[in-house]
Design a protein around this nucleic acid. Structure first.
Lengths: 233, 233
DNA sequence: CGCGTAATGTACGAACTGGTTCGTTAGTCA
DNA sequence: TGACTAACGAACCAGTTCGTACATTACGCG
């Protein structure tokens, strides 16, 4: 949790010199605030407690962010920015569209697994009907690179005739996200009610494969019509 | 919102006589509390506000429920009980397992659509790591009838050879729930980020069909192995 | 018909909470 | 080097917020 940003050695350099460093202070506030909001929800988190866990004071939270509401928005903004950053490195250069979409699904899966805190923030923001997100110009402008990647894979799959036409990239993204998100976000109630830990380590591979199978089965076999019973392809 | 429970006509029967009725008071508190918790989250909801919206006072909340925490637990218990009640009427007596599982998925879909408030409560409870749910003996004992229904459909499908073996009922339930839950719970952030309203009326049928297609494609076509490219079946 | 108890209402308070006021200090730039 | 400003801290404040003590009333039962 201690900031990794090296001080520009102000006078000495060893010992906790505690020099002034706006950037470090901001970042530290955001770090702690992220934890607290994710752990306790927006209303549950306390500005005083966030301040106390910081090396600075509450005054600084208001100095830099202007209030609890805007602090939460800043937390969201940074969290989303990091996610998008990671997405930008999505490498699904498989020649085969089927392998590509599976790989993308698995990367999404791993990503959700690795960032449960982010998932909590998103859940919290949804409880508040995305009001902070909507208020943030930075966030509404931030387009997801994942959609583009999916689009290209779908196009390639359609071109080769392995994917049925008319599947929308955003919908496929929703489908993949839904599975990944649910597994992490709802693990507590699901675990309590069905006595199954969706995030148990020894089931991770099982669910990752299940997701890939599901998406591929849908894309390669999807037909329409309620009577179903779809033929080969 | 006005309680539908008919008074046992105490003296007169017309006019707001305001007689004592423990059951009605309890129910009214739960109704309002459900709304407030769902709208504002656990910490965001205010006991005073809940009381104010009731025809009774805060005193009664403590008299009947013993505190905010236990009030929320009671809210959850009633909400889950109602859901389970509805599930018990699940009627998926289709002769064909494929039609049956599609129908089950669609019923689940409609159910989520019809009870966004319940979804919010579940999201909130997950933020709190299901601590209230875990503390409630009534809730942990309350098994979902849906699992049994799915089990039977899967067994029938396997017997006829239309479903690949080794699919678990709980996992299928998770898969269906994930899609339905995500669509409702995350509609705000998803809508803001991808400019797509997952719950738009004119897309409902599209998503309902998509869910059914997905589940059926998975069950009828699911294979394993990352290389994929699964043959007919 | 009166008595006991379940049900209910009022008023209050201690602790907390978001936000602010006022003043101090470190760094930097002319 | 000295003045100016960004960065910072302690204490405080007004409005809440959960919870309770105390008083009261309706209703069923003997």
């Amino acid at each position: 949790m201690s900031a990794a940003v090296p001080q520009p050695s102000p006078t000495r350099d060893a010992a906790p010199v505690r020099t002034r460093d706006a950037e470090r202070t901001r970042a530290e506030i955001l770090d702690i605030a992220t934890e607290e909001f994710a752990r306790l929800g927006y209303s549950g988190a306390r500005v005083d407690e966030i301040a106390a866990r910081t090396r600075t004071t509450k005054r600084m939270i208001y100095y830099y962010f202007g209030g609890k509401e805007r602090l939460f928005t800043a937390v969201l903004e940074r969290a989303y920015a990091r996610i998008r950053e990671a997405e930008r490195e999505l490498d699904v250069d498989q020649p085969d569209p089927v392998s590509a979409i599976r790989r993308l699904a698995e990367l999404t899966f791993d990503h959700h697994e690795a960032h449960p805190e982010f998932i909590r923030l998103v859940s919290i923001e949804n409880i508040h009907e995305a009001e902070h997100l909507a208020a943030s110009e930075a966030l509404t402008r931030l387009n997801s690179p994942a959609i583009g990647v999916i689009s290209r894979i779908l196009a390639a799959g359609r071109a080769r005739g392995v994917f049925t036409a008319d599947v929308d990239a955003v919908d496929v993204h929703a489908m993949i996200s839904a599975f990944c998100f649910f597994r992490v976000a709802n693990r507590h109630t699901f675990g309590a009610l069905f006595d199954r830990d969706l995030t148990a380590e020894d089931r991770r591979d099982h669910y990752r494969t299940m997701l890939g199978d599901m998406v591929i089965a849908y894309l390669t076999g999807a037909g329409t019509g309620p009577p179903s019973r779809r033929g080969s392809r």
